[in-house]
């Protein structure tokens, strides 16, 4: 009897996988119509989120963040450069997201994909005000810190924006800037890593992404769900619960209530995530 049971289970599993491959959309819809998702989550449930700081010793600040299967590493290299003439007291924060062909067959080798470019640009704008760039000044008009934050995706399974933003916040909190001095005679900047200071973030950012699949609003969509989503809404809150950013993408119009629902869930998410970060 046991033998029959297992073979029957195997047949069901086989039929399910075949169905998923052939009718991907219908496969997902069947779950959604039953008020559940293909990985067993509730609509408003985010995947398990893990944040580890200080994972790369060759970077001055680093973190690894996992949201479900999606894994990114963020490393910040601190270098010295000349400030811009218009802003002689301000340093630089340069953020780039790298989606290499290693993390998913969706991405090709060579130039960054559209998705990577959009993510890089959006995160760059989002963090423009999060860090007080004046604290990166070494000598006004002559030398400032330039922080290059590179977010490398190791494993891609949807919701790259949430993962990348969390990774960058964690890496910035992990960053230790050495005490630096400019020798005006030689123009050399010397730094002492034994006296390192932490960077003060103006605000910590807590992202939450929601996707609209048919008429269902799902939180933290994975790759399979993202492919079917008509719209996605990114809500970013800061630590005092104020809205830092809302970004609704996709051509499908959504109602006010949906946006409200997203913000409410994002507030809840921010509370839980602030404990793990």
């Amino acid at each position: 009897m046991d033998m029959d049971d297992t073979s029957e289970q195997q047949q069901v599993a086989f039929a399910m996988h075949t169905f998923e491959r052939i009718h991907h959309t219908e496969f997902q819809r069947r779950f959604l119509s039953q008020n559940t998702r293909h990985d067993g989550r509730a609509f408003s449930q985010f995947r398990a989120t893990h944040v580890t700081k200080g994972t790369v010793s060759t970077a001055q600040g680093s973190s690894t963040v996992r949201i479900g299967n999606t894994t990114v590493v963020c490393g910040i290299k601190a270098e010295v450069s000349e400030p811009d003439v218009k802003t002689p007291n301000e340093g630089y924060l340069v953020t780039n997201v790298e989606l290499s062909p290693m993390c998913s067959a969706r991405f090709r080798p060579g130039a960054p994909s559209d998705e990577a470019q959009v993510a890089s640009e959006h995160i760059h704008r989002l963090f423009g005000k999060a860090v007080d760039l004046a604290t990166l000044c070494i000598e006004s008009g002559q030398a400032v810190w330039s922080l290059s934050a590179d977010i490398v995706c190791l494993k891609y399974d949807g919701n790259i924006l949430d993962t990348a933003i969390l990774a960058l916040v964690a890496a910035l909190e992990d960053l230790r800037l050495p005490e630096a001095q400019l020798d005006s005679a030689t123009g050399v900047v010397s730094a002492d890593r034994t006296i390192a200071r932490q960077l003060t973030l103006r605000k910590r950012l807590f992202p939450a992404t929601f996707a609209l699949v048919d008429t269902y609003l799902v939180a933290d969509a994975d790759d399979a769900e993202e492919q079917l989503a008509t719209t996605s809404v990114l809500v970013v809150l800061d630590d005092s619960g104020r809205l830092a950013n809302i970004w609704k993408r996709g051509a499908c119009p959504v109602s006010n209530e949906t946006i409200h629902q997203c913000i409410e869930s994002a507030v809840e998410r921010a509370e839980t995530i602030s404990k793990t970060l």
């Binding site: 270098e79 010295v80 450069s81 000349e82 340069v94 330039s146 290059s148 900047v189 730094a191």
Partner: peptide, 18 residues
């Protein structure tokens, strides 16, 4: 132009603690 660019030139500081 497909990436966020930093300053045109940046160098490592001279670490005195080495």
């Amino acid at each position: 132009r497909r990436r966020v660019n930093g300053p045109p030139r940046s160098v490592e500081p001279l670490y005195t603690d080495e």
